[in-house]
Amino acid sequence: MLRFTDEHEWLRLDGDTATIGITAHAAEQLGDLVFVELPKVGAKLTKGEAAAVVESVKAASDVYAPLSGTVTEVNEAAVSDPASIGGDPQGAGWLYRLKLDDPADMDALMDEAAYADFAK
């Protein structure tokens, strides 16, 4: 299940764990990324709190936790080569994985068509 937030993040659910990243639209708006800071594995995140930072040459942006849960894995390749995120933001450019407190929370988020309309 692929879902999107109005903060331009995507989540792909696999079991009770969501892989999270920034959308292609967000990556295009940000331009070339030069720095990424990801949460620590094991961190407990509450929906809406700042979970990660992505920075382009000219600006830093917060990436908020789209749902509550526990961080199980982070994408070290994205940290060591932030520019690579822009090449495949909704695939290899994922940021972190979150074991959701309640996977049913996914249902409240936008599906692909709704997000495409939102990001227009």
């Binding site: 903060e7 993040e9 920034i22 000219k58 600006a59 917060d62 990436v63």
Partner: peptide
Amino acid sequence: MSPLAAGASPP
């Protein structure tokens, strides 16, 4: 996401 700091250049 939201911009944290845009530095001297336009946001």
